[in-house]
Design a protein around this nucleic acid. Structure first.
Lengths: 211, 211
DNA sequence: GCTATGAATTAGAAATTCTAAGTCACAAGG
DNA sequence: CCTTGTGACTTAGAATTTCTAATTCATAGC
């Protein structure tokens, strides 16, 4: 028995786009350009002969079909993700080494991640760093920064926001794409959200989204 | 929330290989060469840093890790498959147009698929054909033949066997890879098995597996 | 109107994946 | 113990897919 399967990478692009309702934001998560995501989704729609999104001038809306399709796909990727973590030693049982930007470190509790619930079991003591090259080289697993930087080929998402001299600023988590969403990253993100506040949508900064 | 995902196409290659316990047979299902499957799986093992198979001189054995990994993946692909069929009109609610080889047609019941349960709701009246080019061109959806032919880029699997002048011969189902495993194909295969006998393993014929 | 945003669309570059051909280790049979 | 056949492995290069970069377009917000 074989399986009838549409292009798997297209599914992944669709799933991310549907979660964000934006190709641009999905592209950040996936570490590619928005054009690439747009193409993948379009190709998927082509092979399924069905429209998954309604394209608006500024964003996306799921069609009825897309809405029906999304939950199973999300579930699917969750299963794969968990199952992979369960069998792959490459990641499980390892504390992530995180670099924290100079500015952000002033806002983190002293001795972070100590004192943040069970975060210390996921995250090692951080170093001060802001160069994505360290992530690429494997020297560190991820970066936490107060501004979006150019991170070609890395996942780069706004995960929380802090109040800094009268305005809200996003906290960005940069890591390899494979690392985004692993249990340690999830713990990190939810702890940050708890420490600071709810994540804000990433509007406003006119930054380019790629380097 | 993003997902930690290994290479999806590698997962697909692994899943098929594990089901067949053979790269060669998996390759047939996937419509590629065994070398390609071998590479995909090896790449997957590399990124997971784990061995999924024990390689024997003649075939494969799942490692403990591989066995633990397989069920979730199979489930995953089943979910995707069903979910896709549910939303894609390209395939659902359409009778497959099948070509049947000259020789095999002598063994099919008269008026097949009539009289074979609900098969007529999945399969249209067949034509006589044996040229995979018709499948490639989309003129027909699949072929049923009594011998393995070269079908570059198409799925080509032994799905049943019949007794013909003193020896068992396999029935091969050739179709586009996307079509293998859709509900109509499943109905076709299980009906054939029922009409004839249990499928035999595809040993013995010294045929090359690719064209 | 003017500016900014995000999606669509290209051509061409980059990366991945596949094939083809040959190697190897072993099993089976004489 | 030699010969034959099988299936996995390896590799270079080909083929295909995927991505980028640049541009275009429609529209929202000012």
């Amino acid at each position: 028995m074989s399986h009838r399967l549409p292009p798997l990478n297209g599914l992944r692009a669709f799933e991310a786009s549907a979660r964000h309702l934006s190709f641009k934001t999905a592209a950040r998560e996936l570490g590619v350009t928005p054009g690439a995501v747009s193409q993948q989704v379009k190709n998927l729609e082509g092979t399924l002969e069905v429209n998954l999104f309604r394209r608006l001038p500024r964003g996306l809306l799921l069609t009825e079909v897309g809405s029906a399709y999304l939950p199973d796909l999300s579930r699917t990727f969750r299963i794969i993700s968990k199952s992979t973590e369960a069998i792959a030693p490459a990641l499980s049982n390892r504390k992530l080494q995180i670099g924290v930007g100079e500015k952000l470190s002033q806002y983190l509790p002293a001795n972070w991640p100590k004192g943040c619930g069970d975060l210390p079991s996921h995250i090692a003591n951080p170093i001060k760093a802001s160069d994505p090259e360290l992530v690429r080289s494997g020297e560190i697993d991820g970066l936490l920064l107060l501004k979006r930087i150019h991170t070609h080929g890395l996942s780069n998402e706004a995960v929380a926001s802090i109040h800094d001299q009268g305005m809200d600023r996003n906290v960005f988590f940069v890591c390899s794409i494979g690392l985004a969403g692993c249990s340690q990253s999830r713990a990190l993100v939810s702890s940050l959200v708890h420490t600071f506040s709810e994540p804000k949508s990433d509007l406003g900064s006119g930054n380019r989204e790629r380097d």
